[in-house]
Design a protein around this nucleic acid. Structure first.
Lengths: 342, 342
DNA sequence: CTGAAAGCGCTTACAG
DNA sequence: CTGAAAGCGCTTACAG
């Protein structure tokens, strides 16, 4: 910038004014500055600008999700990016891999890099560690799961409601032995989906059978193994309700391996690619991950714009999409051994 | 930092030395600084640090891909992130949406934010605009496609080789009317895959029939429409070779709609989720997007570490995975009208 | 080993 | 409208 000022024969302040376009500058001087910029190939250093300017805005935000390569979260990412893009804001994206320690390291590393705000899928037990950064002006919005021990905005799917809808759908098809395959109960969405599952069973006067619940499934392989075990049990479920995309995929593999994909019903939480091409089509409770990202980013920017109202919790509805797998009726019980009186 | 120095009763310089841990400081002073940091909840401003330090390293890089939500690119992203993470480097990620103007805007916006390097999936005709930034010390590595009009490192898949393998596989199954469905020819990988397709046809003495080539397919819908058109033609192809993941998915939808998934063979470039659950399983030429990301990031960091050798082009091999769809033999020609003499 | 001082590249009151 | 000067939060020669 010094070089530009020297070449244009003006002061540093004038160069800054021309580049920022926020103060009136005599047209001829402005032109001289512009041609000096051109001639020297000058690029403004935005970080230095941020450091000095009064609002300290860096035009960058951070996004912490479970895994940038998980289709659900990468679509949330896309949603955030689209809103940020409209404001010329760039996004740091990072994967916490569901590790609390890593979430915290990432949040602090992002704060240290001067981002204006953070959109976080929280996985730690307590986000209180962010208080300090918020006092330094960092804005926070949580997505997919609400924060804990911190009062902040959040955007989540209606997990319990979606799960109830899934189970009601299976009950309506005649099922009573419905298994639940879920992620670790410490994950908010996994807990909520199990809650919805149990509520729907209760509403249908079906007793909860903990033997039909498999939780702590962290990936597709774990889900496949759990599903194989359930299907091989003496009194196997006639339907599966799977708590998220990777679990659904794992369960599909298990069903295929046992040749049961046309026999055992399946409803998955999260829509997945090719769900309509597989046979039977996979009935899902679809979330709208892009909308989650959009709304989270909108909330963040409204805070950055100065909106200081109470924290908000936005709940995005889910949609049940029937494609076949969820409409399979219960198989005749194959010589069911009486495991429970009733 | 001033507050910390004041509370600890030391100079700014000493605080800086303790925090950076790169110079010896008397243990008692160090302890005083540490407790002051703790008491005040001090967080270092890394951007100010970057501005002043001699190497100007920001410990952040930028990644420009076609779409953060495309499974292929999001896995490349993951690969880059994993390598960056090991070095405590954070990654800005952004989608160019295959728009040259946007690629350029993003690259400049990232450079303005002081990133140490850029990993780019180039889509513009000419990356010469980056020369200026590179002279300012920005390191550049290209991934998925080589740069144009700029000498720089690149990591790409063996597109032509993979395409040849795909077509040879179909030829071996007896096919001679093999369609190619590809992205815009301006996209390097799309052009390379068509080249491989044509080379394999030539090697099998099959004349290229341009009526069997559909290019410029920018998404799944376009691919579906193109496939439907091909399948409805008077002399339809007996096999399809699809040039990337979204096109494969579009073609699958078309085959399903016509009930031809067990009749017309299909080999897709890129592996996709559930490819092994669909019936028939989808034969693909798998890339290794994570490895692409890993290698690109490794190359970038080696440059940042001072490696100044000649530009390198790393070619990552592809793997044909036979799952069923690619092994379907040609259907008896259904009253083929003679369209061409021969 | 420690501190006073200069300065990274920029913006912004403050005079003029 | 313009420029000289201070200063954002840091690091780093330079003396001591």
């Amino acid at each position: 910038m010094n070089d530009v000022a020297a070449l244009a024969g003006v002061s540093l302040a004038t160069v800054s004014r021309v580049i920022n376009g926020n103060a009136a500058v005599r047209p001829d001087l402005a032109r001289r500055v512009e041609s000096a910029v051109e001639a020297l190939g000058y690029r403004r250093d935005l970080t230095a600008s941020t450091l000095r300017r009064s609002d300290r805005a860096s035009a960058s935000i951070g996004l912490i999700i479970e895994d940038v390569a998980n289709p659900f979260f990468s679509t949330v990412h896309r949603g955030v990016e689209e809103v940020a893009r409209a404001r010329q804001v760039l996004t740091f994206a990072a994967s916490s891999d569901e590790e609390p320690e890593r979430e915290r390291e990432l949040a602090e590393a992002l704060a240290a890099r001067g981002v204006d705000g953070l959109v976080i899928v929280p996985c730690s037990r307590d986000q209180g560690y962010l208080l300090r950064d918020r006092q330094n002006g960092l804005q926070l919005v949580f997505v997919d799961r609400p924060p804990r021990f911190l009062d902040a905005d959040a955007v989540v799917s209606d997990s319990a409601g979606g799960a109830r809808a899934a189970v009601e759908h299976l009950v309506a098809a005649g099922h009573r032995r419905i298994a639940f395959l879920g992620d670790r109960p410490a994950v908010f969405t996994a807990a909520e989906r199990r809650r919805g599952y149990r509520e729907a069973l209760a509403a249908a006067s079906i007793e909860v059978d903990e033997g039909l619940e498999r939780v702590g499934l962290v990936d597709g392989d774990a889900a496949r193994a759990a599903a194989l075990e359930l299907l091989a049990a003496p009194a196997p479920p006639t339907a599966l309700f799977t708590g998220q995309n990777l679990i659904t995929i794992g369960a599909l593999h298990a069903l295929r391996e046992r040749g049961l994909q046309h026999t055992v019903a399946l409803v998955g939480f999260d829509d997945i690619v090719l769900a309509d091409v597989v046979e039977p089509g996979i009935t899902v409770v679809a979330q709208d991950p892009r909308a989650l990202g959009h709304q989270a980013a909108e909330l963040l920017f409204s805070r950055l714009d100065g909106n200081a109202g109470d924290s908000r919790l936005v709940v995005v509805p889910t949609t049940l999409i029937a494609r076949g797998s969820g409409e399979i009726p219960p198989a005749r019980e194959s010589a069911p051994r009486a495991r429970r009186r009733r």
